[in-house]
Design a protein around this nucleic acid. Structure first.
Lengths: 147, 147
DNA sequence: ATTTATAGAGTAATCATTACTATTAGAGTT
DNA sequence: AACTCTAATAGTAATGATTACTCTATAAAT
């Protein structure tokens, strides 16, 4: 079993979630397709239900949501669809992403642009979060488009 | 007629869009409720159809979409709903926003955090856009929550 | 092996958004 | 002011992602 799945399994267990066939199958799919890459939840739904025709939407969406709460996957909204990517390194430090708008591939950025200079413009506000993302084409997709 | 609506009307006309009662009514609603503030498209839909019971979803969503293409409104996804705000100053320079997650109020930020230091990490990528937003509570909503 | 609560299956509902078609009405022209 | 032509709208229904609900199955603790 890949280390990433073992680690996710540990997280589930230590939070009193049961290790079911369905959850393991979803983790396997996520490790294979959504590592360093955002994948639409609908395509997870489609794949899982093709592979396991008895699986219900409910199970898939609920598990994705639980995985997200536990930090096993990271969620985002791409266009008007929800996407997730597998969070390989749990508890890694705060960072932001370049996201390929063609294939969903993610590149981690080193710096967080939130500065004192910026927050000082928000007197009286209670800042709770921020979002910084760069969009474009990854090297592979960029070279495909050039031809 | 407020100047903002006159300006939006000019933009529509110069792009060969017709000035209809429905569009004018929508612009009025947007100026009143969505100036410096993001408002959910569903609430625009609800309001317009209450005020003008013969208006169809189609008309509302299509016009919102056209307004967005013309730069009359700015779109964003808040949670899983689409929101828009009226773009008071057309063709104003590139900037980012603080957005109140309670009331949708917007505060414009002075600086764009996209730096050479950051883009140099994306060798081979074709950067097409970026998103930077700060979330939190505006002064009014923050003081309400404190009590 | 027994027990108990969580997870899943199956089915249907919900809700935002879009499609389609016949009709209406801007706005330019005579 | 009437005429024309095309874009815009109304009305209706479809679509598609997500969620709700109830009954059953199963993980895992004892």
């Amino acid at each position: 079993m890949p280390a990433a799945i073992e680690e996710a399994t540990r997280v589930l267990k230590s939070n009193n979630f049961k290790i079911t066939k369905q959850r393991t199958a979803m983790l396997e799919f996520l490790v294979n397709t959504a590592t360093k890459r955002f994948v639409e939840v609908t395509s997870i739904d489609n794949f899982m239900r093709q592979t396991f025709p008895k699986m219900s939407h409910n199970t898939i969406y609920r598990n994705i949501s639980e995985f997200a709460n536990l930090g096993i996957v990271e969620r985002q909204v791409q266009g008007d669809r929800a996407s997730v990517k597998f969070q390989c390194d749990f508890q890694h430090e705060h960072h932001h992403h370049f996201i390929c708008s063609n294939c969903g591939k993610v590149i981690e950025l080193k710096d967080c642009p939130l500065s004192e200079e910026i927050t000082s413009q928000l007197d009286g506000c209670k800042v709770t979060g921020h979002l910084f993302q760069i969009y474009g084409l990854c090297p592979q997709c960029a070279s495909l488009t050039n031809n």
